[in-house]
Nucleic acid binder design. Structure first.
Lengths: 251, 251
DNA sequence: CAGTGGTCTAGACCACGTA
DNA sequence: ACGTGGTCTAGACCACTGT
């Protein structure tokens, strides 16, 4: 049972904030001790003494752990680990689905169908609040799982015309967003999602290799930069039943 | 344009924490000034002076406003309102869809189809980790919008047998959860959601008054109490196209 | 350079649950 | 009565942005 030695102390010289170091240590310990039932977790006081810090970084670490579902806290009672560690797959995260599925050991491939500049449809003009002659970069990507189509995503981006990612480049990067950040310094920091079910259109059916009007799950996302500028829109069509979005809501 | 006077000061005698009072005031001001473009928001320093408080409550208020999508903050630059106020409809919130739709001025009714104690199916036993002879309370509810079925939700709860809500009681309460809290002191505090599209089964088609195998959106939710105890499961079937889940993801 | 938000210290008082 | 987490004060130093 003696695994890798767990990092036990914090580094005051590090540029990494204390609360983040504490959080990382606690996450590792929680994962190492996963399954042990009902044992109590350290109190704020114990952590303050253990790490020789004030309450603020301890509280910030515990608060983030609670927000992310690792522990729950009850006033006057204490802090307790949740029984089942959160899985938090992406899907509503922004980009990176392919990498995630691969990490899970799934046979997952991504194919760029096309990269081109297009004139927006009327619908798209309204959504992105642009004029009909403002061109947008359209990236069409098909994600395959075990050789079968899983998701077809089309992303429209309002970016300078000198952003010209190649197909291979995109396939290697696993997400447009990392290229955007690397080459243009543009960071996508928020997505407004709408999720609904629908029947596959003829084109969708063709791309995903299913029958016409078969059920599909559609997520439409408005993409915003760090400065809250609306910079793009994405529509992803997911095969029904095979693809499930998962996530938690706390209150 | 002179609406109700905005509350401008905080009440130190109130039991409501300062940061919540500040947050509420700021939300009202943001909504009142919605649409005005690009104006800067108060800095932490200004708010400290305005409300005569220390930085902590101001920071907590601003942090929550940022988490909830009202403002975004940039280090060394400032805090700025987002252009479009978040709408935040529920749907993934826990309970209260009916009330929300009514607030939006929609003609929305809720009908309890049945309330009964049932033996769990094999599938449900696995999900809730119970024995096949542990009974569960099943509540079947149909939500109608403009006279047409919108959502069919079935909730299974592991609760003491003396919790016997009546149909009328449930319809008035708008959600089982408020009754659970009021009558049993049980607070549902977390939901693990799975969302997918599927074709309507024969039974679903009948209840929702649609054709067999028409697309539907399904959300399955595991319900947890404040102590992280798995206390129930809910499966909700939504009419396709008419019903869209909406929400934001920040990173 | 001054001003911003991010982090941290070292205290304090409180409401609430357990014993 | 005691310990828990929730809130608050009044300071401090830092990295970064804009001028």
């Amino acid at each position: 049972m003696t695994k890798h030695a767990l990092k036990l102390t914090i580094d005051r010289q590090s540029a990494v904030p204390l609360y983040k170091q504490i959080k990382e240590i606690l996450i590792k310990e929680l994962q190492a001790a996963a399954g042990e039932t009902g044992r109590p977790f350290s109190t704020e006081h114990e952590l303050v003494e253990r790490f020789h810090v004030s309450r603020a970084p301890v509280r910030q670490a515990l608060k983030e752990l609670a927000n992310e579902g690792y522990v729950y806290r009850e006033r006057a009672k204490g802090t307790f680990p949740v029984q089942e560690m959160p899985v938090r797959p992406p899907g509503l995260e922004l980009g990176g689905l392919v990498g995630f599925l691969r990490d899970q050991g799934m046979d997952c491939k991504s194919k760029i169908l096309s990269v081109d500049w297009v004139l927006p449809t009327e619908n798209l003009c309204e959504i992105l609040r642009i004029e009909p002659n403002d061109k947008a970069l359209r990236i069409s990507r098909l994600i395959m799982l075990k050789g079968k189509p899983l998701v077809w995503a089309q992303t429209y981006l309002l970016v300078p015309e000198d952003f010209q990612p190649g197909k291979r480049e995109l396939e290697e990067a696993e997400s447009v967003f990392v290229l955007l950040e690397r080459e243009q310094g543009i960071l996508i920091s928020r997505g407004d999602h709408q999720i609904y079910a629908s029947g596959a259109s003829q084109m969708v059916a063709e791309v995903l290799d299913i029958k016409d009007s078969e059920p599909v799950l559609i997520t439409e996302t408005k993409l915003y930069t760090r400065n809250d500028r609306l910079i793009g829109w994405r529509k992803a069509v997911h095969i029904a039943d095979d693809y499930k979005l998962s996530f938690s809501v706390n209150r």
